[in-house]
Nucleic acid binder design. Structure first.
Length: 948
RNA sequence: ACGCUUGUAGCCCAAUUGGCAGAGGCGUCCGACUUAGAAUCGGAAUGUUGUGAGUUCGAGUCUCACCAAGCGUACCA
């Protein structure tokens, strides 16, 4: 009987679903294991062959752990809020809820066709009110807490208010954005609004003025990637930076813990590096400079307080609060012009700008160490959100300051002698200080310490640790997201909803366009916004990262209406043992999830400090983009396309690379890919504009309808992201139809190491398909009749099996799934050589293979007459004794070069072999006339004799 | 510009603590079966491990420099 996947795969999937084979209980005596995939955004395009890579790997691991006797939580859900559904709604009028639910249904179908062992009863999706009730609740809790830097944990904001009333904020060490100091009396004398505004600067969820990309013509706020070259991608209208009051999360409070706790978790070094770079901790000093002739002080952050004698001017970010206050009358116009120039640029554009720009504001500061007057400038190279938004500029020892000073003719004083350190760059922070009064002659690190100490004595500064990490904007002026559980009273003070009033459901509307003034569409819904008690609702919604910051906890207890998850469930499942997902989430999602988890941990609601113990980033499966060349100078009515080789020859030609749908291309992905005559006809059908075009190769020219035998227009193949816009999306359905799900799963694993990105190609899939057929044929005789023997296995057969058990188990443990597949191939090839059909052997092999090929193994399991599911069987135990050989052949090297071999008993000790080695013929021959200086023996491996 | 990752046969890739460079697959070639092809089975070939140095008895593996590709970050004071 032949192996026919279509006859068995759907049957078993239906069976598993009916039997609840993959249902997971929270009540179990077994040890727990939690395997999590990053849940997908259900996009309208559906799954392509790249998506399942990580899911297959995690499914194999989950099944492996289950067979080993763990109670495995392996859920799936959807990250269902987000911009694309809303954009789609704007174009088509289809409500985001409708399209999202349709897309989720399609995803569920596609995912189940891949045979995953998800417990779908635990599905969560972020746009479900029963889910986002708790997203809103966590936000409200963040609002109700501040971060205490003494105990290093979040505490209730009411405690802080009580402390302010008792002792002011002088002794309070807490994460905040409040600059001032006040006593208890001063606090108690404040009015209600001032007190509330002050507390706001301490809350973990808080409101402040932030900047957004505002497009007046479109009447909307745009994301950074919707802005190209300072204008909106759609329409090409101007985009400016607009200040708006928005919600922020104080993630910076957790910066230190987010950085240092990376040591606790098993993530790749590259991922840890990305996170730690993002957090960007830097040690330095915070220093105050007085502004000449005023009471104002400018605070700067510097990592080089040792160079302060070389600080010849200051630069403020154009948005700095003091700019308006300090600008002199003469400079008003110049400053206003410059700010207008800066504002007209998007954040992205501003960062790409290489030209040095700035303006003098007319005021002077006093360098506290030299007591000289130094001019104050504004310049866009100083960022409003980093440090204090102001710098002391030391043109001698900072490249950017140097460029600025050179352009505007500002003074440069050389303060570090680097002659002792040839080749050192400025970032090396080395040299001997000069021209710097009491610091002269010191090495840089000593001078940094000395300068800090002096600043502290003078009361003008102190040691300070600064982070690149910023409190990210948590508000979106959009529709398709979680509404904030926030109301404002008549004084404009924010109040969060109590848990009993949650969820605050997203109101239904068909009008998704943003409202006036850059506010969200919700602002237009006055019935919803204005409450009977006179309060008004917040109309922004949360970003997509909100719902994904805690979903892994919800899977533990997905239907709980009393809490985000019961303490019993959380204490049982603890944390995620293995998390698999793409590296595109290396920063935002993983940082926020860790932050929220730590906050919940501080509140005693989760037992672990980190949510994801081990993390594996799967690589991306790329697509090949196929291009043909369009002669830009050809007339619109007779477009001229040329093949890749013609375009290469015509070096003076002006060609546009036009991507063509990969379905039209022959030899897709190979260097000799081409469009045949049929391919060109398909292309013309697809792009009717080109009906009159000519297609030219070195050998001839083709035009639509022309009678020609053979025509090959070479295409250019480039590896790139698989994307709808590149017309290179490969859907798994066709592959599965042809080869079956088990084959597809194993082939994706076989492509290469899981963490590596690689282009999709089906060249090798026949090899995997052949393997499955061979595995199947082990159970059948020449005539295709079922034939399994109950005889005892031979020593050789046991050796083959146990080699495979060891190989596959070890490789699963280190996530090397590609080598597992080859291990299976070796095993079946070897068993076939012995014509092995022993039940004992084949049954164990079947269990071993079950995580990879769940359908065919289940079918065989049934045919073997076993009860229950193979996926609940017991994993085979490895027995070393089956691998043992009587003797081992050792390579004999002389001076590191292999010169022969010799056989030794596998029991022989290092000393035995060393003693015997000197007498070997080969050794005698090569050491003739020389002395044996050393014999190196690695038992079981090799012998090396050093002569000379 | 910096950081991280990768570079092994025509191609995809193995080689886990430094120990005989090759497990597996694709492709190629030869043979068997066959009228023929497909499928299947048996067999074979292929190397300066990106380049150059260093450490070592021994380097694909460790160190340094360089080259190439991929990813990430990017005026971070």
């Amino acid at each position: 009987m032949d192996y026919t996947p279509s006859n068995i795969e759907q049957k078993w999937r239906d069976h598993w679903k009916a039997e609840g084979t993959y249902k997971v209980s929270n009540d179990s005596d077994k040890p727990k294991y939690y395997v999590l995939d990053m849940f997908p955004y259900p996009s309208g395009a559906g799954l392509h062959v790249g998506h399942p890579l990580g899911y297959i790997a995690s499914d194999i691991y989950a099944r492996y752990k289950r067979l080993q006797g763990f109670n495995v939580l392996h859920p799936m859900g959807f990250d269902a809020f987000g911009l694309p559904a809303e954009e789609y709604a704007l174009q088509t009028g289809i409500h985001p809820a409708t399209s999202t639910h349709e897309n989720m249904e399609r995803y569920r179908e596609q995912l189940s066709a891949l045979g995953f062992s998800f417990d779908w009863d635990r599905e969560v999706y972020t746009c479900d009110p029963n889910y986002y009730k708790w997203t809103q609740w966590i936000f409200a809790e963040l609002f109700e807490h501040y971060y205490d830097q003494t105990t290093k944990k979040a505490l209730p904001i009411t405690d802080l208010a009580a402390r302010f009333a008792a002792e002011g904020n002088l002794k309070v060490k807490a994460a905040n954005s409040y600059k001032g100091k006040f006593t208890a009396d001063a606090w108690n004398a404040m009015d209600k609004v001032t007190q509330a505004d002050t507390l706001m600067e301490y809350r973990l969820a808080y409101r402040k003025i932030g900047y957004v990309n505002w497009c007046e013509e479109l009447g909307t706020v745009l994301a950074n990637d919707q802005v190209k070259d300072g204008v909106s991608e759609r329409g090409g209208y101007p985009v400016v930076q607009k200040a708006m009051k928005q919600w922020y999360l104080r993630i910076t409070a957790y910066a230190d813990r987010l950085l240092y706790d990376l040591d606790e978790i098993d993530w790749s070094d590259s991922l840890k590096t990305i996170q730690s770079n993002w957090i960007g901790r830097s040690e330095g000093a915070s220093l105050f400079f007085e502004v000449d002739g005023t009471d104002e002080k400018i605070e700067v952050f510097t990592t080089r307080p040792d160079t302060i004698f070389g600080a010849t001017y200051m630069v403020l970010a154009p948005e700095h609060d003091l700019v308006a206050k300090l600008t002199t009358d003469e400079q008003q116009q110049a400053v206003a012009d410059y700010i207008a120039y800066v504002k007209a640029k998007s954040e992205v554009e501003r960062q790409q700008e290489k030209e040095v720009t700035g303006a003098f504001i007319g005021a002077y500061a006093i360098n506290p160490f030299t007591n000289t007057r130094i001019p104050i400038w504004i310049g866009e190279y100083v960022l409003k959100d980093y440090g204090t938004g102001a710098i002391m500029a030391v043109p001698s020892d900072d490249d950017r300051d140097n460029a600025f000073a050179t352009k505007f003719g500002l003074e440069i004083i050389d303060v570090v002698d680097k002659s002792k350190y040839p080749g050192a760059t400025l970032s090396d922070k080395v040299g001997i200080i000069k021209n710097s009064g009491f610091l002269d002659g010191m090495e840089v690190p000593d001078a940094i310490t000395a300068a800090c100490k002096k600043a502290e004595e003078m009361g003008i500064g102190e040691m300070h640790i600064n982070y690149k990490l910023r409190d990210a904007n948590f508000g979106r002026q959009r529709y398709w997201g979680e509404p904030f559980p926030v109301m404002y009273d008549a004084d404009g003070l924010a109040h969060v909803l109590k848990v009993a009033d949650l969820p605050l459901e997203l109101p239904k509307t068909d009008d998704f366009k943003p409202a006036k003034g850059g506010r969200s569409p919700l602002a237009r819904m006055e019935d919803w916004t204005n409450l009977p008690n006179g309060m008004t609702r917040e109309t922004d919604v949360m970003p997509a990262v909100a719902g994904s910051s805690w979903y892994f906890l919800r899977y533990m207890d997905p239907n709980n209406s009393e809490a985000f998850a019961s303490q019993k469930a959380i204490n049982y499942w603890q944390d995620v043992d293995l998390y698999v997902g793409g590296s595109e989430h290396a920063v935002a999602h993983l940082m926020y999830a860790r932050f929220w988890h730590k906050f919940l941990h501080d509140k005693g609601l989760v037992p672990t400090n980190e949510p994801f113990k081990k993390l594996v980033n799967q690589g991306m499966i790329q697509g090949v983009i196929e291009f043909i060349f369009l002669d830009k100078n050809s007339p619109k009515t007779a477009r001229r396309f040329v093949s890749a080789d013609v375009a290469e020859q015509e070096t003076d030609g002006d060609f546009a690379k036009i991507p063509v749908h990969v379905d039209f291309v022959s030899n897709y992905g190979s260097p000799k890919s081409f469009l045949s005559k049929e391919g060109i006809e398909k292309f013309i059908d697809w792009r009717p504009d080109y009906k009159t075009a000519t297609f030219e190769t070195i050998e001839g020219t083709y035009q639509h309808g022309q009678a020609i035998d053979k025509f090959e227009l070479l295409t250019l193949s480039e590896v790139g992201k698989m994307s709808k816009s590149k017309f290179n999306v490969i859907n798994p359905d066709a592959v599965i139809d042809r080869y079956g799900t088990d084959c597809f799963r194993m082939y994706e694993m076989f492509l290469g190491p899981i963490e590596q990105s690689k282009p999709w190609d089906t060249k090798g899939i026949d090899g995997v398909s052949k393997f499955l057929k061979k595995y199947w044929s082990l159970f059948f005789d020449k005539n295709g009749e079922w034939s399994v023997s109950d005889e005892a296995p031979t020593k050789d057969e046991l050796k083959i099996l146990h080699t495979a058990i060891k190989k596959v188990s070890d490789d699963i443990e280190r996530f090397s799934f590609n080598t597992c597949v080859s291990g299976f191939m070796v095993c079946t090839n070897d068993l076939r050589k012995w014509r092995c059909n022993k039940r004992v052997i084949l049954k164990e092999l079947t269990i071993l293979l079950a995580p990879f090929a769940p359908h065919v193994t289940e079918e065989i399991w049934k045919r073997l007459g076993e009860s229950g599911s193979v996926h609940h069987a017991t994993y085979p135990t490895f027995d070393e004794s089956h691998l043992k050989e009587d003797s081992i052949e050792y390579p004999i090297s002389i001076n590191g070069k292999k010169r022969g071999v010799a056989e030794f008993s596998s029991d022989a000790s290092r000393d035995d072999i060393m003693a015997a080695a000197a007498d070997l013929e080969i050794v005698k021959k090569w050491s003739e006339g020389k002395q044996i200086r050393k014999i190196i023996v690695v038992p079981g491996r090799m012998v090396n004799v050093v002569v000379g």
